[in-house]
Design a protein around this nucleic acid. Structure first.
Lengths: 156, 156
DNA sequence: TATTGTTATACTCTATAACTATA
DNA sequence: TATAGTTATAGAGTATAACAATA
């Protein structure tokens, strides 16, 4: 994004009191532009993006997800999950295991290499997140995460 | 997005306690998927999207923006602003005015029609936002907006 | 020289429909 | 008949470079 390389501080302040600045969809869009650009940059050395990192993270859970679970939880179409898992699988970070109970489903589960990479990646995203939230103190960060969870983390 | 038509409530809950659920980039991505899908749907009868609505909104401000201002504030590339303003201008909702002080710049200013449409659109987005935030009480909504502003509304 | 708006281009992301194999 | 994964494809969104006009 060419718009934000050299910190265009100037006019942003002029519109901080605009009607738009109070609107959720705008704030979330801007927050996402800031946060996911930073997170993707930080993850680049590990050859991960927020998307693939999210898949890897869920594949590390005790009860690993099916591809359908991944699609639902990440609010992606099932067809978008395929190339994400393909990539991680080619790199030996996850494997597709046929579900014992339903042979249509494939459970995506992290390998040992995948788990090791995840540990490193998690440190990276934590650091990137801390930078994004640098204006907020610890209590405010918790509060923001809690409020976002209440809104975003529910079936829709 | 096919993933969210019939409310896949099932496994979302299973992963609500996952590591990922605590991560900002994931929460923001999910929040945006929910909120901007809903806002875009709500704006569709007015033939607006969150993007074009945002441009129209800023064009209604007392001190209207140049295209460069729009790019900076909306975190879009200047080349993405062009077709957005083109569309609104063709529909008679905004006009490009050459800046008196800098003839390179074009100020984007809403017409009377544009202002009237904006008033209607603002009601629509307010209602859509209320639906998105239905889990939160009034105090929590203010709190969330305030925290998001502190993070998102700053030059980067 | 640097910046604004613009065009062109390539790339990623998103959405839809259809197919297969299972249930 | 319905669902999980997959493939293909078209559309929207994003990023980059280059150009003309102006500063």
């Amino acid at each position: 994004m060419a718009a934000d390389s050299p910190s265009k501080t100037s006019k942003v302040e002029s519109f901080m009191t605009s009607d738009l600045s109070g609107e959720l969809s705008f704030l979330v869009a801007r927050m996402r532009a800031i946060g996911s650009t930073r997170a993707n940059d930080a993850l680049k050395p590990l050859e991960l993006k927020v998307r693939s990192y999210s898949v890897l993270s869920l594949a590390c859970e005790k009860v690993p997800p099916t591809q359908r679970d991944l699609a639902d939880f990440l609010t992606l179409d099932p067809s978008q999950i395929v190339p994400l898992v393909d990539d991680l699988e080619k790199r030996g970070l996850v494997t597709r295991m046929a579900s014992p109970t339903d042979r249509r489903s494939k459970v995506v589960i992290a390998t040992e290499d995948g788990r090791n990479l995840y540990v490193r990646a998690r440190r990276v995203t934590a650091h990137s997140e801390a930078e994004t939230l640098s204006n907020l103190n610890e209590e405010e960060r918790t509060q923001l995460r809690e409020l976002l969870s209440r809104v975003a983390l529910r079936p829709f």
